[in-house]
Amino acid sequence: MKILVVDDDKEIAQLLEIYIKNEGYTPLAAYNGEDALSMMRTNSDIGLIILDIMMPGMSGIDVISEIRKDSQVPVIFLSAKTEDMDKIQGLSSGADDYVTKPFNPLEMMARIHSLLRRSSNNVTKSAPDIIDIDGLQINKESHEVTTESGNKIQLTAIEFGILHLLASHPNRVFSADEIFERVWKQESIISAKTVMVHMSHLRDKIEEATDGKDIIQTVWGVGYKVEG
């Protein structure tokens, strides 16, 4: 699998390339947004992107906006901005995770493994695990969500993980912390904010595809659920 590192700081990019290669992946590097998009067009097998936010020319926000037009490849933002609002803005733009500089390369690799598990390790050799919730068919094997009219809803790996978790346990309320620990498989001090951002994107996509159906319910002060 190829992992694309996009950062105008060549030392950071080269450091990440070393760790990525040591983990058995094939690293690619781009030092600006334009080259990153060009690599995306010529390498259809890129499985994950590490994307710096603050770059000359196209920013990371600009790059992910272009990527999300036709791809749900997992993206980890890398940024020197450490405030919660900066992280929320980054996640709101379509990123799956957010790592601040300076960072521990081992932590970065752990986050990469977590995201790749979410996006590729749900395939089984048994019959497809299909859940039907209020007209939505959620297929764990193919990672597809289909409406009653046959339209597919394009979800990121994290968004699919959240929906599948809730749909697998109808009527059970999950707190934001529980959702984060089960879907991201890690702990974080900003888990509630992170889940809130991804939940908002997930709801918007479902409502747009189903003419406004409110599939995911908020239980105020407790968490989220879907009704069976």
Rank of each mutant, 00 (worst) to 15 (best):
N122M: 13
R111E: 00
G135K: 12
R118Y: 09
D86E: 07
I138E: 04
D129H: 04
I130K: 08
I76L: 02
I64L: 02
V99C: 03
D86V: 06
E66I: 12
L115A: 03
D62P: 06
T100Y: 01
S59Y: 02
K69M: 08
I61L: 15
E107H: 08
S79N: 13
V99T: 04
Q72L: 14
S79I: 06
K81Y: 11
L106K: 15
D52C: 04
V63H: 07
H143P: 10
M55P: 07
V73Q: 09
T100G: 00
K69C: 12
D97S: 03
K81V: 12
S120M: 13
R117D: 14
G135F: 03
L136C: 10
I88A: 03
A110C: 05
N121E: 15
M85S: 15
V63R: 08
N139Q: 10
M55K: 01
I112C: 02
S93D: 02
S119N: 08
L51P: 02
L78C: 13
I131K: 06
G94D: 01
I88R: 07
I53R: 00
P105C: 03
N122G: 15
I64N: 07
A127E: 13
I50F: 13
S71Y: 07
F77W: 06
K125F: 14
G57N: 10
S71T: 07
D134R: 13
S119P: 07
A127I: 13
P102T: 01
M109R: 02
S79H: 03
D84G: 11
S126K: 14
H113C: 09
R118D: 08
D132H: 08
N139P: 13
S65P: 11
V63F: 10
R118K: 13
M55R: 01
F103R: 01
L115P: 06
R111G: 03
E107N: 11
V73L: 07
D70Q: 14
F77G: 00
D96N: 07
A80D: 05
N121A: 14
L106H: 11
D134V: 11
P56L: 04
S59C: 11
N104H: 10
M55S: 10
Q89S: 06
Y98A: 00
H113N: 08
V99P: 03
D129E: 09
L78D: 11
I50K: 01
Q72M: 15
N122F: 13
T124S: 15
S126T: 11
H143C: 14
V123R: 09
L136Y: 05
Q72A: 15
Y98T: 00
D70N: 15
G60S: 09
Y98H: 04
I61S: 05
N122I: 11
K101P: 04
R68K: 12
P102I: 05
S79G: 09
S119F: 06
L91P: 02
I138R: 00
P74M: 09
E107K: 02
N121T: 12
D97K: 05
I76K: 06
I88D: 01
I88L: 01
N139E: 10
